[in-house]
């Protein structure tokens, strides 16, 4: 192993250990674990009951000589909706806290000068910290996914197919990218503020806007969302008429969609919901169809995460160990 890679690995392990030993972070992780488990448990219990009803219907139909039975309306992965929403909301806070702690820990312990007096480059410091954070985030996502799979099988009574597991893996990758973007935001903003706590407050403000306010504005402005089941269905307008009506509201829809598109969280949510069969319209889609439908969400997710990751890289590289002077 090259010495540079060895130093990056050492720094990453150090970051991982610090995160695991942080009471604040562990408390947040426990909260996420509990609410996610409860959400999946309740959904899986309801699913088991619905599955029993469907199986009873199939048995009764077959006993009555009915040849053609309705396909099951149940979608196993849709039970993950709660877990995805919790990762979207609480996962983002955990990632921001992780980024904040990366910087504030070095400041509080005054260890940055010690690190910089070793044969460690600023690039290695940035890479090590980011790798450690990715390790923590991946552990969290993999653990959540594994527990969810077990809950679906044991409590829900249905084991996921390899195709469904693969789609869960894709959601997991998106979750890691999503949380890494918020980690980068937390670390970058904290590194740029003189008082670390101010960085955390700014990030929580951004979180509020990106995760809660912008998507809520988009949802509120969507006329079809105002009535359960949809406005157009309620007034008996079919899809063709709905499309025709909406062509008269092109500018309005452009602005509404634009506000939603500003939210990094919305792109993650749209992709994850599509992959988990949460939305009816994507049921039965193949992966290539899903990719065609959701390519812009995938692109935006990577654009946001890459931009913030690059910002973190530059921010760490430019962060002086001590305040610097002036060149003569």
């Amino acid at each position: 192993m090259s010495s540079s890679r060895s130093r990056v690995t050492t720094l990453a392990r150090h970051e991982y250990r610090a995160a695991v030993r942080s009471r604040a972070l562990v408390s947040l992780l426990l909260i996420l674990a509990v609410v996610t488990l409860v959400s999946i448990y309740i959904a899986a219990t309801a699913y088991r009951s619905a599955l029993a009803d469907y199986e009873a219907y199939v048995s009764a139909a077959q006993a009555g000589g009915v040849q053609l039975v309705a396909p099951s309306p149940l979608r196993l992965l849709s039970l993950l909706r709660g877990a995805i929403e919790y990762i979207e909301i609480i996962g983002a806070i955990i990632a921001i806290t992780l980024g904040y702690l990366t910087v504030s820990r070095e400041r509080a312990n005054r260890t940055l000068p010690l690190l910089r007096s070793r044969p460690v480059t600023t690039g290695e410091l940035a890479a090590g910290s980011a790798l450690g954070a990715l390790g923590i985030i991946s552990t969290l996502v993999v653990a959540t996914g594994a527990v969810a799979l077990l809950c679906l099988g044991i409590i829900g009574g249905s084991w996921a197919t390899p195709y469904e597991v693969f789609k869960m893996v894709l959601v997991g990758i998106a979750s890691v990218v999503y949380m890494f973007a918020f980690y980068s935001l937390g670390a970058l903003v904290t590194a740029r503020t003189k008082i670390a706590a101010n960085g955390l407050l700014i990030c929580l403000g951004i979180w509020l806007v990106v995760v809660l306010i912008l998507p809520q504005i988009g949802d509120t402005l969507d006329a079809d969302n105002q009535i359960p089941g949809g406005l157009f269905s309620a007034i008996g307008v079919d899809k063709a008429q709905e499309t025709e009506i909406l062509t008269h509201f092109g500018t309005y829809e452009f602005i509404r969609t634009g506000i939603e598109e500003l939210s990094f969280a919305k792109h993650y949510e749209r992709f994850a919901f599509a992959m988990s069969d949460v939305q009816d319209k994507y049921q039965g889609f193949t992966l290539s169809q899903l990719a065609r439908e959701k390519w812009h969400d995938i692109v935006w997710m990577f654009v946001y995460a890459s931009a913030l990751g690059f910002g973190l890289w530059r921010g760490f590289r430019r962060q002086p160990a001590i305040s610097q002077g002036v060149k003569s």
């Binding site: 010495s3 060895s6 130093r7 050492t10 720094l11 150090h14 250990r17 610090a18 030993r21 942080s22 820990r105 509080a108 312990n109 005054r110 260890t111 000068p113 010690l114 690190l115 070793r118 044969p119 460690v120």
Partner: peptide, 24 residues
């Protein structure tokens, strides 16, 4: 440095091992 603190969440040995690793 003056007023050194090192990493509070680690033991003395862990701190030393960490800095030794960074120094190769």
């Amino acid at each position: 440095p003056s007023d050194v603190r090192l990493y509070d969440h680690m033991t003395a040995t862990e701190n030393l091992e960490f800095f030794a690793k960074l120094s190769g």
